[in-house]
């Protein structure tokens, strides 16, 4: 069928080449949730610096000479914002919008988006990376963690799809 989007196989090859360039230049793959983690650490460090210094989790990222925002993933995700915006501008898709299945209200969509985000954020920390950082990058480097993340994330979403069908179809 005719579509306004790029051929998915061509997009996949381009995505793979971007990932390959990350490996070739920086010796590491892509990621996303790690950048949000940096923002969380930086924000908590501003509000409660004593808490970050004493916490087993935050203290890894703050302190003398360490700056959580000066991280590879933070700059990469700023690039994603720019690249996504450019693509949207190029293809005429820039628009303020709550996108949802017509069978549900915009408010319901927003509530579920928020809940999904909380789960994804929490899970990405426990699982050491999200779909980009653990699954996609991990698979390209043949890592067991990458294949496990991919299978468990997609497997769980498939298993729960029936219960959430009223939100989507």
């Amino acid at each position: 069928m005719k579509t306004k989007y790029m051929n998915p196989y061509l997009a996949g090859v381009l995505l793979g080449l971007v990932l390959l360039m990350a490996f070739f230049f920086s010796g590491r793959g892509l990621g996303a949730s790690g950048a949000v983690k940096s923002v969380v650490v930086a924000a908590v460090d501003v509000v409660a610096p004593e808490h970050t210094a004493n916490s087993g989790y935050y203290s890894k990222y703050v302190g003398e000479g360490k700056s959580p925002m000066k991280a590879w993933l933070v700059f990469e995700m700023i690039g994603v914002l720019v690249g996504g915006f450019l693509s949207g501008a190029f293809s005429g898709r820039l628009k303020w919008k709550v996108e949802h299945f017509p069978g549900i209200t915009a408010n319901r969509r927003l509530i579920f988006a928020g809940m999904g985000g909380i789960l994804f954020g929490f899970g990405s920390q426990l699982g050491r990376g999200c779909t980009s950082g653990s699954a996609l990058t991990g698979m390209a480097s043949l890592s067991v963690a990458g294949f496990v993340s991919m299978m468990v994330i997609f497997g769980t979403a498939f298993a729960l799809a029936f219960f959430l069908r009223k939100n989507w179809i």
Binding site: V80, K97, G121, G127, T131, S149, A157
Partner: peptide, 30 residues
């Protein structure tokens, strides 16, 4: 366990972290 929680987040929220930032860049409020 992290993957199970992320999979639930995916089908409930409709995005993963990378795609949500990309969608926010073109104005998707969700």
């Amino acid at each position: 366990v992290g993957g199970v929680i992320m999979g639930a987040g995916f089908i409930i929220g409709g995005f993963c972290p990378g795609t949500s930032v990309c969608a926010a860049a073109i104005g998707k409020i969700d």
